[in-house]
Amino acid sequence: MPKEPVAVVGVGQTKHVAARRDVSIAGLVREAALRALADAELTWADVDAVVIGKAPDFFEGVMMPELYLADALGAVGKPMLRVHTAGSVGGSTALVAANLVSARVHRTVLTLAFEKQSESNAMWGLSLPVPFQQPLLAGAGGFFAPHVRAYMRRTGAPDTIGSLVAYKDRRNALLNPYAHLHEHDLTLEKVQASPMLWDPIRYPRPALLGRRLRHDPHRPGRRRPRAAPARLVHGGAMRSEPTLFAGKDFVSPRAGSDCAADVYRQAGITDPGGRSTPSRCTCRSPGTNPCGWRTWASPRRARAGSSPRPA
């Protein structure tokens, strides 16, 4: 039996700032959910189930936050599933929600992920103090910086790539009124001159934290609530590798290329690097333990350099 098509019909996010002191975590998630519902022209009553993703609870110190947030998300009495794959949870949550729709378990799913960094400590939250031992790395950047250096050495990637991505991200942020930073006068040179944190990762980093995106996968064929076309999801996959095993390639883990290949296959894309392929692929950075790659493919205008290339 073929799978049900899945589409994103609404997206909402909160205004990203350094600290949202005006809302609790519940207020934060409800704000984004309301915007997603408004974007989809749906109401709380239209939602069949809620899928919520959260990175380790230790960051904010609110354990099992999905239980606390059921009220804020209109999920009381409805199925609620919490996804937890550590750093990869943003993407994996969306995958779970999409799979629920494609498997016809639910028709309309509100899915979301959140982080409230002003009430958390993402850098040290999982670094349990071990006596008589100096910490060898600090935060996710400290863990990944050697891998980044090795990848650049192996592939011959220019050392300006990271700065270029960071600059590109911040230029794109100018198009999003909810983005944290609107740096109108930022230049590539300013990014390259910024302080080094973990060589080669500098202070304006390519990856933006604190994403609070939400969307509603929804079965097309039902009443279409809005004039704008829904974005169909053509493929999605996740791969994991154990943190340590014999033969593991830390620099370019096989999970990443396997995942990308699976998504392209699902979407019917045979030449991901070619210019003729209208596709966009988003590879999220993995969590530290276990590593995970989530890759989406949706039909969009191709952008140069947007496709991942296995080393």
Partner: peptide, 9 residues
């Protein structure tokens, strides 16, 4: 399902 010591599914 889940637990306060990071148990998960």
């Amino acid at each position: 399902t889940s637990g306060p010591c990071l148990q998960q599914n």
